[in-house]
């Protein structure tokens, strides 16, 4: 009996290890390609550390392309949008969490409903609006296009978190003479720092990884975000593969770490929103 349980356990681990290899392998390959020396970029070699491994591709992607500029563009656009998104969501989420007013239920449902709208559907009118405002190919156009895309989800996350903060804290503050808004601003908001940072992170990664809107709004290579830049590099697959892989790896590492750190909260936010809606 013990023998059988042991065999079963080995089998379990073997299956999981196999699954892990499938899920990690593409990234390992990316690293392998980025380490290839320039003259051996195109080979059918599958080893993870290629012969004659060098960091030359990293140097080249930083020096010969606008990689750093692309990162900078992404950073400016993403930071401003996340800041706007979270500020709007912080107050709206509080209204939904603490007050009953006509349309509060309907409003929450409609917010979930916006997630059903195909992204491609909103993009055309948004693009035309941005064009008429003369904001094509500017940071501002991107910020306008991104600023509310994550708002419904952020409101749900924050509302869920506010719901867990006991009202007695605010009531005590009211007795001590603060206003209703003061109670929110001085008591609830500081207590919600974890949820606020998760919402910020969610907004940030959404905008940071976005490609389709950027493709439409930005056309000048000096305004490109990194997603557009990498797509360009990958388009010249045969000549720039190493540089593409090096750039991809550099972008992936921080995003990966942030995600692993925050995924627990994101999932609970997702299912919370889904179950209650």
């Amino acid at each position: 009996m013990a023998e059988r349980a042991r065999a079963k356990n080995v089998l379990l681990h073997a299956a999981l290890v196999a699954a892990c290899i499938v899920s990690v392998y593409p990234m390992l390959r990316m690293i392998a390609v980025s380490l290839r020396p320039g003259d051996r970029l195109l080979s059918t070699d599958l080893s993870l550390i290629p012969a004659g491994a060098s960091l030359a591709a990293y140097g080249r992607v930083l020096a010969e392309t606008n990689f750093l500029l692309w990162l900078w563009n992404s950073l400016v656009i993403t930071t401003v949008t996340s800041f706007i998104g979270v500020s709007l969501a912080a107050t709206a989420g509080y209204a939904f969490s603490r007050f009953r007013f006509p349309g509060s239920k309907l409003g929450l449902t409609l917010l979930l409903g916006t997630q059903m709208i195909p992204a491609g559907m909103l993009l055309l009118p948004l693009f035309l609006m941005i064009m008429r405002l003369g904001l094509v190919n500017t940071y501002l156009g991107m910020i306008v296009a991104y600023s509310v895309t994550s708002l419904p989800f952020s409101i749900w996350i924050l509302k869920g978190y506010y719901d867990t903060i006991p009202r007695s804290l605010e009531e005590a503050a009211l007795v001590d003479g603060t206003t209703r808004f003061g109670a929110f601003y001085r008591i609830v908001l500081p207590l919600s720092t974890p949820a606020l940072s998760i919402a910020f992170l969610f907004n940030f990664t959404q905008a940071w990884n976005e490609y389709l809107v950027a493709r439409v709004v930005l056309c000048d290579a000096s305004k490109y975000t990194w997603t557009l830049g990498l797509f360009e590099l990958q388009g010249q697959f045969l000549t720039q593969w190493g540089m593409f892989a090096a750039g991809s790896f550099l972008v992936t590492i921080p995003v990966l770490l942030l995600f692993l750190y925050s995924s627990k909260w994101l999932v609970s936010g997702l299912t919370l929103g889904g179950v209650k809606g």
Binding site: S23, V24, P26, M27, R29, M30, W208, N209, Y211, T227, L230, F231, Q234, F244, A245, S248, V251, T252, V255, L256, F259, L260, S263
Partner: peptide
């Protein structure tokens, strides 16, 4: 990891 990687990178790779 497939979920955590930036989608654009994962798809292009």
């Amino acid at each position: 990891i497939p979920w955590a990687m930036p989608q654009v990178v994962a798809i292009l790779a």
